[in-house]
């Protein structure tokens, strides 16, 4: 009873939460891949999700910008709350347009996926241009800011008209980060953004994520536990679609409460 009351009167989290899920479940057909996940991500967190392959962490973050439902046979139940105009809004409430949600919750994918046939500039400007921003000087300014934020500006400022696909893998991934940042999302979801990259590119992106913290809340799925330890301040451990443990990264890695977390981070499975 007291617990229930505590949960309803918990204003601290409400004020600063960038994202909260309530009993979020997701399916592929009959396969229940995300099971009743409730967690809160504070504003300006770098929040990492770790767990073995197939534990549902990627599907989980794909629910947070309503991308999961684009897959055939995919289904979602539960609530995802993000701050809207004045109050928090459930992105799965009736009548909410997924398109408008995705402008506020951006995403970077596992493999760099710049739009083929589009220049570096147009790749970054795509989200704004197609949303109706036409003034050239506005576009130019935002493209530059986004590329600076993504630590790519110096490398591409002289070849903005070259195709985005002409860049190296690591540069392409930073281009994709710039593209996601250009629409000014509140939350940035990153689905194993460095798993296709070499160590040097990985280091650059990690550095970048830590800098981004001041502008945007980051949720990052990673297979690399060192990466989670290096860049995040909060970590959640997923196993077979369930949330096993969540807390400050330091305590998850040094004194995990659950024996399964301990087994995973010490490399005994996964």
């Amino acid at each position: 009873m007291t617990e229930a009351i505590q949960k309803t009167v918990q204003p601290i989290g409400v004020a600063t939460a960038a994202l909260e899920t309530k009993r979020l479940s997701a399916w592929f057909g009959d396969l229940h891949v995300v099971k009743d996940i409730s967690l809160t991500v504070e504003k300006n967190d770098v929040f990492s999700l770790i767990g073995p392959s197939g534990c549902g962490k990627s599907t989980f973050i794909r629910c947070l910008n309503r991308l999961h439902e684009e897959t055939d046979g995919a289904r979602v139940r539960g609530e995802v709350l993000i701050p809207g105009a004045g109050k928090r809004e459930n992105i799965y409430a009736q009548g909410v347009d997924p398109v408008s949600i995705r402008r506020r919750v951006g995403m970077v994918f596992q493999k760099p996926n710049p739009f083929p046939g589009l220049s570096i500039f147009d790749n970054v400007a795509a989200g704004l241009k197609l949303a109706g921003v036409v003034r050239r000087n506005v576009l130019e300014e935002i493209v530059e800011i986004s590329l600076v934020q993504a630590a790519l500006w110096d490398e591409v400022k002289d070849k903005l008209k070259k195709p985005g696909t002409s860049l190296s893998g690591g540069q392409q991934q930073r281009l994709c980060i710039a593209r996601a940042l250009a629409v000014r999302p509140q939350v940035l979801l990153m689905d194993e953004p460095t798993s296709a990259l070499d160590p040097i590119s990985t280091a650059r992106i990690e550095e970048l994520v830590m800098k981004l913290r001041s502008d945007v809340t980051v949720l990052i799925v990673t297979h690399n536990m060192q990466q989670a330890a290096r860049i995040s301040n909060q970590t959640a451990f997923f196993l077979m679609g369930e949330l096993v443990e969540v807390g400050p990264t330091k305590s998850i890695f040094t004194k995990p409460k659950d024996s399964r977390t301990e087994q995973y981070i010490t490399g005994r499975f996964g």
Partner: peptide, 29 residues
């Protein structure tokens, strides 16, 4: 065209038809 390119467009908060006509089609000119 890989599904990930479609998803990249959707993730920018763009409707499907815009993604297809303005972002996918130029790549397969």
């Amino acid at each position: 065209v890989p599904a990930s390119i479609h998803e990249a467009g959707l993730a920018l908060g763009l409707p499907r038809w815009k993604v297809l006509i303005r972002l996918i089609l130029p790549g397969v000119r």
